[in-house]
Simulated assay, not measured.
Amino acid sequence: MAVSLPNGATVSIASTYATLKNMTAITNAAQAVATLEASHGVAVSDILEVSSGWSKLNNRIVRASAVATNDVTFEGINTTSTSRYPAGSGTGSVRKITAWTQITQVLDSSTSGGEQQFTSYSFLEDDTERQIPTVKSAQSITFNVADDSTRPHYTVLVTADEDRIPRAIRVVLPTGAVLYYNAYVTFNKTPTLTKNEVMANQVTLSLVADPTRY
């Protein structure tokens, strides 16, 4: 059992991607192995955005743990369940993230969503209801960032807000663990104006896939 504080964590946004590479096959395995087109340029430890016919894998951010010619292992991505990952239907593409820009001066953060939803039912002979789980609500993360238009992250956030294309987000924790998200980015360029409080811009990340933790 362990507890930890987020003090010292850093948050970065993907600012540059390589060209998209086709993923022509992917295995059902404890660690999925994807076959990419020739000259894919992926090396061990590269971070990839995955587009896949498997909805549980689609839009995930993954790390390459091994590369053998055109076969790339997705670290920690378990696709053994053929009910969730039907064999032969997971093909798609990957994009390598080639540069990150740190979002500095983060004042605080909060999360919302992710709650399990249920449907209730009862039989004619019942005098109580039962519940079964359905889906989880959409999840988002909000950061309040000190207002400073001269910081490198400012332009990156403005671009992400305007083009409405999901961006990879990396959070490095003080423990050394790394969290990867993929999200639509909303950036409020109007700073807060509260007397005796630091002016801040709000960054909202609307997640499009499950996070990946390494």
Rank of each mutant, 00 (worst) to 15 (best):
D46K: 00
D46T: 00
D46I: 00
I47L: 05
L48D: 01
L48W: 06
L48P: 01
L48T: 01
E49Q: 08
E49W: 05
V50T: 11
V50F: 10
V50N: 02
V50H: 04
S51G: 09
S52I: 06
S52L: 10
S52F: 13
S52R: 01
G53E: 03
G53V: 06
G53Y: 03
W54I: 08
S55N: 14
K56M: 15
K56G: 08
K56I: 15
L57I: 07
L57M: 11
L57P: 04
N58F: 07
N58S: 02
N59M: 11
R60T: 13
R60E: 03
R60D: 08
R60Q: 04
R60C: 05
R60F: 07
I61D: 05
I61Q: 03
I61N: 01
I61E: 05
I61K: 02
R63T: 13
R63F: 09
R63W: 07
R63H: 10
R63A: 06
A64E: 03
A64H: 00
S65Y: 07
S65G: 04
A66R: 03
A66G: 07
A66D: 10
A66S: 09
A66E: 06
V67R: 01
V67I: 06
V67C: 13
V67Y: 04
A68Q: 14
A68H: 15
A68I: 14
T69Y: 11
N70S: 15
N70K: 13
N70L: 08
N70H: 15
D71V: 12
D71N: 03
V72T: 05
V72E: 06
V72M: 07
V72P: 04
T73A: 09
T73M: 04
T73C: 07
F74N: 00
F74A: 03
F74I: 02
F74R: 00
E75T: 05
E75M: 04
G76H: 07
G76Q: 05
G76N: 07
I77E: 11
I77K: 00
I77W: 02
N78V: 13
N78P: 06
N78R: 05
T79R: 04
T79D: 10
T79Q: 11
T79H: 08
T79K: 05
T79A: 15
T80V: 15
T80F: 11
T80A: 11
S81I: 11
S81A: 13
S81P: 05
T82G: 14
T82V: 14
R84C: 15
R84H: 12
